[in-house]
Every structure is written in C-alpha cells, then in structure tokens.
C-alpha cells in the first residue's frame, strides 16, 4: 500500500488503541483513555469508508454500509445506556459475541467468492495462507460468538450449568476434528468438498457452547475476558486477509492484552486458568484447552 491519507488514518487508529489501552490501565486516566480509543476508531472507520480503494476502485454499496452503521449505533447506544449497572459484564459479553460473529461472517462472504469461482470451474490461484486466515477467522469468531452468548445467558440466569460425563474429551475431539478438517480443506479445496466449510462453522459453534456451558457462573468474567482475546485474534485474521494494519494491531493488541488480563483476573481470585477452565466439575483433566 502506498502512503496515502488512509494509511495515516490507520496509523492514528493504531496509536490511539495503544495509548487508550495504556490510559485504561490507570485509574486517573481510564475514562479519557476510552475516549481516545473511541476517537481513533472513528477515524479508522470513516477513513475506510471514504478513502479505501483497491485497484483504483472505491467502495460501493454506501446505502447498505451507512444503514448498518446507523442501525448498529442506535441499538448499541440504547442497549448500553439502558443496561443496569449490575448487568454490565453480561452486556460486555454480548457485545464481544457480536464482534466474533462479525469476524465469522466476513469469512463467510470471502468464502462465498471462492465458492462461486470453484463452481464456475475457474482455476483459482489461492494462497494457502489466505485460506488459513479465512478458516481461522471463521473458527475463532464462531467459538467466541457461541461462547459469549452462553456466558451472557449464564450471567443473567437464563442458562444453567450443564455438563455430561466425558465432556472434556468430547470437546477436545471436536476441536481437533474441526482443525483437521480445516487443514484438509486448506490443502485440498475443490468444488466437491467446499460444503465442509459450513460443517466447520457448525462444529465451531457447538464447541463454543460446550466450552462455556460447564464453567461456573462465578468464573464467567474470566471466561468473557478469554473470549474477548479470542475475538481480538479473529479480528487480526481479518487484518491479514485485507492487508489492513489497524485491524491487525487492534486485534493482536487485544488478543495479547486480553490473554494477560485473563491471567491477572484469575490471580486476583486466587485461581489458575486451568482451574477455572476444567476445575469446575470433578473429572478427567486430560487437557488444558486454554487456547
């Protein structure tokens, strides 16, 4: 990407995210830090809408984009303003799930393009790396979405703890099967097996549900923090897909900071992450899927 105004917008965005996170971790500056990051986000978003171009072509479908932005803003502000103080963690979890879903949907559309090309019999020069990022975005985004919705339901008491014997093993097998299938598709994608993509999406959603279901309600903030860092990584996958620096820095920053924050939260409760993730019900501690 040559140096353009958009590059500068993305630079501003990345910088404000870093500064915002830094300020958020000090009591005196926390609120300002949040504002700083929000301003940077606005710069990055509007920069993308008005300045992004690929091969000289600007973005189209403005009415859809702005429609989505307005609708999302109205619902988002109303939901965030109306929520009771005590219900805030569950709201955060829900918003986090939305981000995860967004990442997964991006993978869906990107895959849709590939699918069309495949069924038209075009020979695609696909980078394995592109496919890997599409699949990672799909898997991580879906797990984060499903897990966050379950966490939200648990915090507001709509969903009860649920575990069945051998769930840990089942989860691990499911995750392994999903990853192996994704790996297989990356190497052998063709017009006959592309439907496996949707299988991966469903398996990831199921995994997200089963991953959070057995964890006790008191440990939910830790789980939300973990899912939060997952979504960060999913966002970073999008950064790779579009060579987009601000998505990459934002996503990875949150991924790294979120992982550390998860560990710090565990420490504050005198627990270990392993303990939270698999210790909630007695049983076979075969693996620590701390991902």
């Amino acid at each position: 990407m040559e140096l353009s105004l958009l590059t500068v917008c993305y630079l501003i965005g990345s910088l404000t995210f870093i500064i915002g996170l830094k300020m958020l971790s000090h009591p005196d500056s926390a609120r300002k830090g949040n504002m700083v990051a929000a301003v940077g986000m606005a710069v990055a978003i509007f920069g993308t809408i008005f300045l992004y171009e690929e091969e000289g072509k600007k973005l189209g479908n403005y009415e859809w984009i702005f429609g989505g932005l307005v609708l999302g803003t109205v619902i988002g502000v109303l939901a965030a303003k109306k929520v009771k103080m005590t219900a805030m963690p569950e709201m955060v979890s829900l918003f986090n799930g939305m981000g995860g879903a967004c990442a997964a949907l991006i993978s869906f559309i990107e895959f849709d393009h590939i699918k069309h090309a495949l069924s038209d019999g075009l020979s695609l020069q696909l980078h394995a790396g592109t496919l890997i990022t599409i699949f990672l975005g799909l898997i991580i985004g879906s797990v984060s979405f499903a897990g966050s919705v379950i966490a939200w339901g648990k915090l507001n008491g709509k969903i009860k703890d649920f575990a069945f014997p051998g769930q840990q093993i089942f989860n691990l097998v499911l995750l392994a099967a999903t990853l192996v299938t994704a790996g297989y598709l990356v190497l052998n994608l063709n017009a006959d097996n592309y439907w496996l993509f949707y299988g991966i999406a469903i398996a990831s959603l199921v995994y997200g549900v089963l991953f959070v279901l057995p964890i006790g309600g008191a440990d939910m903030p830790v789980v939300i923090s973990l899912l939060n860092s997952f979504t960060g990584v999913a966002a970073a996958c999008g950064g790779f897909l579009y060579d987009n620096q601000v998505m990459l820095t934002g996503g990875i920053l949150v991924g790294a900071a979120g992982t550390l924050l998860t560990i710090l939260m565990c420490k504050a409760m005198n627990r270990s992450l392993t303990n939270v993730l698999i210790g909630s019900f007695g049983g076979n501690a075969t693996g620590t899927s701390s991902g």
């Binding site: 809408i49 973005l59 955060v92 918003f95 920053l253 924050l261």
Partner: peptide, 15 residues
C-alpha cells in the same frame, strides 16, 4: 475497553 477495540473487525466488514 479492549472489547470495544477489537470492534475494529468492523473495518473488514465495511471493506
């Protein structure tokens, strides 16, 4: 706050 920041994923959606 970190949750809001990973909302940058929206840029991918816009593109």
């Amino acid at each position: 706050g970190a949750n809001a920041i990973h909302g940058v994923v929206i840029i991918g959606a816009i593109i």
